[in-house]
Nucleic acid binder design. Sequence first.
DNA 1: CTATCTTTGTGCACGTGTTCACAAAGACAT
DNA 2: ATGTCTTTGTGAACACGTGCACAAAGATAG
Lengths: 255, 255
Amino acid sequence: MATGRTHRPATRSRGIPEATVARLPLYLRALTALSERSVPTVSSEELAAAAGVNSAKLRKDFSYLGSYGTRGVGYDVEYLVYQISRELGLTQDWPVVIVGIGNLGAALANYGGFASRGFRVAALIDADPAMAGTPVAGIPVQHTDELERIVGDNGVSIGVISTPAGAAQQVCDRLVAAGVTSILNFAPTVLSVPDGVDVRKVDLSIELQILAFHEQRKSGEETAESSPDPAAPPVRSVTGSRKGPDGDMPAVMPA
Amino acid sequence: MATGRTHRPATRSRGIPEATVARLPLYLRALTALSERSVPTVSSEELAAAAGVNSAKLRKDFSYLGSYGTRGVGYDVEYLVYQISRELGLTQDWPVVIVGIGNLGAALANYGGFASRGFRVAALIDADPAMAGTPVAGIPVQHTDELERIVGDNGVSIGVISTPAGAAQQVCDRLVAAGVTSILNFAPTVLSVPDGVDVRKVDLSIELQILAFHEQRKSGEETAESSPDPAAPPVRSVTGSRKGPDGDMPAVMPA
DNA sequence: CTATCTTTGTGCACGTGTTCACAAAGACAT
DNA sequence: ATGTCTTTGTGAACACGTGCACAAAGATAG
């Protein structure tokens, strides 16, 4: 069982760095907004500001796609929208299934950004038989038993998992077996998939914890770290040596 | 190593790499699971597998926190849970407000992972007066007018924005003005905030686009990239030179 | 106490991503 | 045409993150 190999061997992704790929959707969004305002061209400086990155980075990112700018002028908005869309594969239709129609699944099904760009919700799937047939966001929920058929019939290659953590791996396995090769996982679990299958995870809890870390740093400026220990810190329950009476417990204090 | 007294600044926690911080919640989750199964100790190899990372990385990550392991044995689960929790600031209570109680906001309010670790939903806020008073996840929704008071009264420092894109920046500004210094943004917009305020974004649409990119690469293996252009590629509408008929258009080929 | 065995902690090399800073490309005015 | 002015595209330096490989720490057995 090939665990989610974290390392990308060589990212056969001919050339374009992963970090750049991750920013392309950001540029695309900014460009789309400009396009709607009928702005004909934009400089790297302006576009970078709109996308929240620095202009040198943006230019380098674009340079991986090709030379689409005009020196002295900037980039043609429409042209760039097309090129980035194409590079991201958004010029084709991507049928997507959402598995797990709870609060989150329903919210995803209703999310407009889905359909806005090439993505089409082909089906909503849930394990609860009581939900079968109930329309969510105008799409009737189907039972998990139909999963394989749905994926096969619709040629679905992207699956979204919004089930409870406990069911995620199993759903993942079934999706993969049915032919899905890209998974967006909202369940708080590490999924293991065979090589060739991409998994991206979105984890609210993790994001909050990262914020808490920085938040603590900010407020901890004055509180220093001499705080003894509010809650009784568990004592090392190792085999038994090392831990001493209890005076050296938090041992770590760098002296 | 004969570290002698190279001890880092009194704050041993200074300088934890961002990449490490982002993984701590992952380790914490794996450790919590082990703890619930009453597993006393775990080796870097086992824990790494559970967290989906490689063991060397895990050990290096932990080394930034201090020497919490025992050579020849591994790490004490309970002790490590405590240390990581503390490092992440999860030993204290973080009141959080969620602004924008649409489908997504409601899903977030109901999300269990929220309360599970130090985070407490202090209030739900929405601009729709009709929602005021309606309980969502057992918490009555309050009107946006109350935002400043709520943040102030509860000492909220973390805000979650799940409003439509158009309202996000405004809500963000108000949150920041009211004292919030960390924001988790679900709206598909780039937020601009003053220095000292952290923003993390969760963007479904972007994740899907990244998946589509890789998906296209996979299926494009055979199709090569010689595909001319399915949809009429917009012609460069620059001032007028360079663009030629349409022969040199896609010009990009990796080269 | 000594030997052996396991697993941590980390120096080092390598790869990826970011930023600077500037030459070259082209627009535009004269 | 020629010169000036703007903005791109990119080489090179730097910063950051990753993974290998191994010595040192400690457990454990004899």
